[in-house]
Design a protein around this nucleic acid. Sequence first.
DNA 1: TCAAGAAACAATGTATACATTTTTTGCTGC
DNA 2: GCAGCAAAAAATGTATACATTGTTTCTTGA
Lengths: 241, 241
Amino acid sequence: MADIILDPIEPPRSGTATRSLSVTDRIRASVLSGDLEPGAKLHEVRLSETLGVSRTPVRSALQSLASEGLLEYAPNRGYSVRRFRTSEIVDAYEIRAMLESLAARFAAERGLSDAERAAIERALEDGDQILARDELGEEERIAYGTVNFIFHDTIHTAARCRMLGDMVRLCQSVPQSSHRNVVSFDHLDVRRRHDDHHRIYDAILLCDAYRAEMLMREHVASVKTSLVRALSGRPSPRRGR
Amino acid sequence: MADIILDPIEPPRSGTATRSLSVTDRIRASVLSGDLEPGAKLHEVRLSETLGVSRTPVRSALQSLASEGLLEYAPNRGYSVRRFRTSEIVDAYEIRAMLESLAARFAAERGLSDAERAAIERALEDGDQILARDELGEEERIAYGTVNFIFHDTIHTAARCRMLGDMVRLCQSVPQSSHRNVVSFDHLDVRRRHDDHHRIYDAILLCDAYRAEMLMREHVASVKTSLVRALSGRPSPRRGR
DNA sequence: TCAAGAAACAATGTATACATTTTTTGCTGC
DNA sequence: GCAGCAAAAAATGTATACATTGTTTCTTGA
């Protein structure tokens, strides 16, 4: 039984958000980490006992996670962990490519704030520094993952479109699709994609909306390609350099 | 007070779905129709009394609608009808253009079932017939709205990508963005867009993924253009014909 | 032995009471 | 009259009891 890993929710110390939100985060983490296996049924009473809360916040959390697409719901039959086919995970990257390319276009059309420019430039410099080395250790990978996240997230913000940000988040809340995995690919691929970041930023600065869109679309699509390659077990092709 | 229009929920006659779902549909309709004004606060007790149910299904419904993006939620402060700026409604069409163009590409790449081919061809023929007249009455507009919906919905189905369908639905669940409005534009615009449908279907049949994508993107974007024109009060330009 | 049905069980759906937080009200003092 | 604070009111958050639905198990009959 997989829900043994779920420790009780903290006592209601003030300043904490509602129990419903805490429980939601806890269960979401269990699903995304794979501790709760796909297809597993989520019993309200069992969860409430494990987490030390009543069924009310548990039900609220399950409903939230279902609307995020992480759980399946059937009336009178409860919730279960959604099964994601590989094709769905790959398709999620195609969708992200469309959404993020639109975000890049919006950012180019609508301009960056000073803070956003600073954040991106910082992310680019930090990335340059991390990738200067020949080999990447676990620590560097995590660090670059953060840098990568900041770059993309800042552009989503600069797009000034809440719905777009929400949808990108939906794409990312798919098991095995988290941004952590992105950096676990080939070193050369990561460098190439960091190069993409520089180009995308240039296009946005120049208000070249078309180029920003196309570059971002290709950028995200290349992650899909790397993913497919990794899933099929084939090594990444050596390009002439 | 606007929630007078909400009649009580039907008694629990069997065969009906859960009260939570009924309440969700009821409140969603009130929000989309504009009976509940943007920014209005939704009090759980008041709603439960008006609808003749307890707070439990009301809370469930409010949470659902918030995750659909129709309501705002703040912990300990409840739910209110989300205000949509005009820019957000327009942006929703840009997002739809990206998503539906991807759906058209997927449909072209993955092929149509016999039933889907039949459904689209039926929609195209019905549309031809409706638009053959010189003027469109209210009845014809509603009929064409249905035809238009079937065309797009069938392509979403043919894309074989649940996440894509879910996201398009999110785009459509924006006030003033319902497909009903699409047909209330200029007659020539509607004809032009029906022509688009024919071309898109051709491209999908020919497995021309690139063309299907581009045509669909322009198709949805043109709705945005019509919307912007309608919002700004300018008449649609007469093109030479 | 197996299919069909009924009863027991267990799960989810709903109502309601209580707890906590937010908002309002009204008082006090300047 | 108004700023600031305290108490009261009202709203949301949570727990729990009950209702309804779904599932399992056991019995019964062929």
